[in-house]
Amino acid sequence: MSALLSTEISDLPVRRGKVRDVFDLGDCLLMVATDRISAFDWVMPNGIPDKGRVLTQVSNWWFSRLGVENHLLSTEVPADRLPTGTDVAALAGRSVVVRKASIVPIECVVRGYLDGSGWKEYKQTQSVCGVTLPAGLLQGSKLPEPIFTPATKEESGHDQNISFERMCEIVGRETSRELRDRSIAIYKQAADVALERGIVIADTKMEWGRFEGRLILCDEVLTPDSSRFWPADKYQPGGPQPSFDKQFVRDWLETTGWDKNSPPPNLPTEVVTRTREKYIEAFEQLTGQHFPWK
């Protein structure tokens, strides 16, 4: 079993992100989730087999349930629109055809629990992105109500947390309010659904775009890469939580002496295997479905 680290489709313009390769089909886009995995702002030299399929299938599952207009046109590989010789089988399960939307340059982050950069900021200021929170919260504490904490979208490095007022200056107050309210509503809906299935969605980030003047949900949504998924039966505030994401990768890297400023080392087989298992476990527990490529 091997990881798909890059996709090549001859004669099609492509833009590559940390995980996705996006091909221009003219009137729409073909978005392919590879098996690349990043940590500490570096893409690892080897990937996690089927990770891209998990992210794509989890997103598709949510898109079909949220009742929110989104970018998705088709979950099938458009073989009839691809050049002869394209490896269609490699694209299966990890590809979607999507609308061309003008992406809003803000990461719409919603937090229901206190962790990550929010926890670090809270310890210093008792607030997150300008939102004042109650005293005495612990790492992993559930917040009284979910909060909207936007961030700028950065081409490299960490996205930068900003205040809601700063977001208004960048994209306008009306757009900011709509994105805040809709993002929080989606998070609440999804958090309830996931909790019924034994998963705590601690926080998530969403990407929105404008299509024919309307704001639609884009990219991936509510996946183990764009969210913190915690097993509900192990949830205990007061420290780091077990997770369904790439924590095995981060934990192993922390033991290697890697300086995080130079190319990272190859991930060992055990770390790759356990990380793949966690991604698949998240898919199966959330959707109640058997992962087809297992």
Rank of each mutant, 00 (worst) to 15 (best):
E196S: 11
K188F: 00
G198K: 06
L179H: 05
V221S: 07
R177W: 12
A191I: 02
S183G: 03
Y187E: 05
L179E: 04
I186A: 14
I201V: 08
V221R: 07
C218R: 02
A190H: 01
F211E: 13
I216R: 01
V221I: 05
D181F: 10
V200I: 05
T204W: 07
I184Y: 15
L195N: 03
A194I: 02
M206F: 13
R180I: 03
R182A: 12
A191P: 01
G209D: 14
D181R: 10
F211Q: 14
V200M: 04
A194W: 07
E178W: 14
I201D: 03
A194R: 10
I201E: 06
K188L: 13
M206E: 08
V200L: 06
C218T: 06
D181M: 12
D192P: 00
G209H: 12
R177A: 10
I186N: 14
V200P: 02
D219N: 05
L222V: 04
M206C: 06
E196P: 02
G209E: 12
Q189P: 02
E207G: 10
K188S: 10
I199M: 00
I199K: 01
L179N: 04
D203L: 11
D219A: 11
E220Y: 06
V200D: 10
R182G: 09
I201Y: 06
W208S: 04
E178L: 15
V221E: 00
G198I: 00
V221C: 10
